[in-house]
Amino acid sequence: MLEALQIECQRGDQRLFQGLNFCLNAGELLFLQGNNGAGKTSLLRMLCGLSEPVSGEIRWRGENIRRMNERFRGELCYLGHQNAIKEDLTPLENLMVSTRLHDETLDEDAALKALVEVGLSGRAELACRYLSQGQKRRVALARFAQEKRPLWILDEPFVALDTQATRWLSQVIGAHVERGGLVVLTSHQAIDIPAGRIHPLFLG
């Protein structure tokens, strides 16, 4: 499903890696590890199509993602370093806005339910700037409670989360893999995801 062929990555003058290959099929998880600066985030951004590899190509369902554009992005869900939430909006508004931008429909009840699931009950109507770092991360993650797109790309999803939220997220990711979804994630912690096949990949 998701293939990387001979990927080369440079940052400035430095070559981070080259000749990187992998193939990820339905129901599999790629656990990307490496030291700081090894190019984990760079690789994830390439897999999303945000940046282009210096050489090599990335294929989704056998087709180059460069050529697929919107068709590829319609099957992708990305969580970046930054939470992509607006401080001025409430968690509920943030969730509604981000799902709409991704062309999904989520009614308010489902959104509220998702927020309760991530442990933000009672905070749904509070502007996000009053939330803690971990709570903001949860707002960003709430999208994944209902997310049905096949490919998830998650950059350090567990950062700033407490044990309870970590467990919840592991379950959500596990359920997604179980359903036949694909996940690419990076983490400095060991992950404990209940299901599916996990392929570790070390960079650097």
Partner: peptide, 15 residues
Amino acid sequence: FADGTLEQMALAPYP
């Protein structure tokens, strides 16, 4: 750009 929303817009299934 600063809070990552622009990135998400670039990944939305529209140009």
